[in-house]
Design a protein around this nucleic acid. Structure first.
Length: 425
RNA sequence: GACCCUAUCGUCUAGCCCGGUCAGGACAAGAGCUUUUCAAGCUCUCGGCACGAGUUCAAAUCUCGUUAGGGUCACCA
């Protein structure tokens, strides 16, 4: 029976690297019809926080990494104490004050690693290991070994930073009379400096990416591609397909630099392929949060707005940023856009256009364009001459979707008002 | 410093196990098409087997070494 576990410590938010470790464990379990266990390693009473636990659980669910069994090490302290006593009784460990320390036997330890093959370490490089701290709590390695053994974990899949813990833990397995599991040490996720990803490199918590408007499918997809590939040149891979093709032996050995650009691109792909209605559901609460005072447009209107921006946004946050002109009353102009397109007064053109638009009965993309083109012709200027100033007048920006779609989404009244008020006429 | 891990375009990677395809794809970058702008989309371009030996008719692929990067050396996990 394949049994794997993800064992986060609630001393911080779920890190993007931790999420990938969880994902690989999850995929490995699913690929082999095994069980995925979530074990909270909260033996450090001082640093563990309830809020971090909640955040980790939330992020796991958001990513879709449902677990089959759940344990908390803080519930199991008696167990660790019993095993410590056993080692004491057998003379394999000794006491130093209240602490229990394992005597390191001199020997060669062989780790069988599914990704790196055999790793051999001589225990002469390792000091005696503390098993129980003076305060009565177990050390990481001790609790980890007992739990992995008792929970019958068949393969420990974790980050490369644990390689040097592994021989120490194998010694503990042997002292306890347990059979060590298989191991698989994943390469680390690196920052731009090729060092292990840390907070100064930007967003590092899964919840940060969630807040920034990344879709869980895209995050999962991106993460699985760091150190693994389905091998068919595909970039957009659903988790179901990945599970079908997954093999831990095909995981890379070298660290992988995290690329926010590629994540954004992938996220954009997912957004494009997501049904508009679904996006509206995701965006609505975000809009409510951003504009608590406003009443949002009805579903149909919202849908047309989302539809208009769907193909161009990389994150949901982009939508919020780009559509502010629809929701705010006092437009803020991008200084550069204003300088470029509104430096010269267009009050005559704008008022003529506003007047013409006001006469349209059915204000839609087609009619707006017709009116616009007639006005331009009447004024003897080119469409381009007026398009850009009008866009800036309506949205505050020089870039955006098609002008006529933008007008319709803004609504007839606001379009006309903004044209008229632009130069205070 | 000691020990351990690693090394294909700027980045993520396919190929490596079972030597012989112009070393393939994606992101980024550059160019073009399209367009009222930007983005998207499509087409094209740029760009890589860290280095040195060895084995072999033949090495990205096997072996050794060098160099470089990373990780770990806690009564933190």
């Amino acid at each position: 029976m394949v049994r794997v576990r993800f064992a986060p410590s609630p001393t911080g938010n779920l890190h993007i690297g931790g999420a990938r470790t969880a994902l690989f464990n999850w995929m490995y379990a699913k690929a082999q019809g095994g069980k995925f266990i979530l074990r909270i390693e909260d033996t450090d009473k001082v640093r563990s926080k309830e809020e971090y636990l909640d955040e980790i659980l939330d992020s796991m669910k958001w990513l879709g990494l449902q677990w089959d069994e759940y344990y908390k090490q803080s519930d199991r302290f008696d167990l660790y104490r019993q095993y410590a006593q056993k080692l004491l009784d057998e003379g394999k460990a000794y006491k130093d004050g209240e602490a229990v320390i394992l005597t390191m036997p001199l020997k060669q330890i062989k780790i069988y690693d599914l990704i790196r093959d055999e790793i051999v370490v001589d225990t002469k490089e390792i000091k005696d290991q503390v098993l129980m701290k003076s305060d009565g709590s177990p050390t990481y390695s001790f609790a980890c070994v007992i739990d992995d053994a008792l929970m019958e974990i068949s393969c420990v899949i974790r980050g490369e930073d644990h390689i040097s813990n592994t021989p120490k833990q194998i010694v503990i397995y042997e002292a306890l009379g347990f059979k060590p599991p298989k191991f698989a040490h994943l390469p680390l996720i690196l920052d731009d400096e090729r060092a292990r990803m840390s907070k100064r490199a930007g967003a590092v918590a899964v919840s940060d990416y969630r807040r920034q408007g990344f879709l869980p499918e895209a995050v999962v997809n991106y993460l699985m591609l760091l150190g693994w590939s389905p091998g068919n040149n595909q970039e957009k891979v659903t988790i179901a397909t990945a599970v079908k093709n997954f093999s831990i032996k095909k995981v890379n050995k070298a660290g992988a630099v995290f690329s926010i650009d590629k994540l954004k691109w992938l996220n954009g792909q997912y957004i494009k392929d997501t049904e508009t209605i679904k996006l509206v559901q995701l965006l609505e609460p975000m809009l409510k949060e951003k504009y608590p005072e406003k009443s949002l447009p009805d579903g149909k209107t919202l849908e047309s707005i989302v539809h208009l921006f769907k193909g161009r946004m990389a994150t949901l946050a982009d939508f919020l940023e780009w559509t502010d002109f629809i929701f705010i009353d006092n437009l803020e102009f991008d200084p550069e856009a204003k300088e470029k397109h509104l430096a010269q007064s267009r009050s005559k053109e704008f008022s003529i256009l506003a007047e013409a638009l006001s006469k349209t009965n059915d204000f839609n993309v087609k009619s707006a364009e017709e009116v616009f083109r007639q006005t331009v012709e009447q004024l003897g200027i080119t469409a381009g001459d007026l398009v850009h100033p009008v866009r800036v007048a309506l949205t505050g920006r020089s870039v955006g979707p098609g002008l006529f779609e933008t007008m319709v989404v803004l609504g007839k009244d606001k379009t006309i008002t903004r044209l008229r008020e632009c130069f205070n006429c």
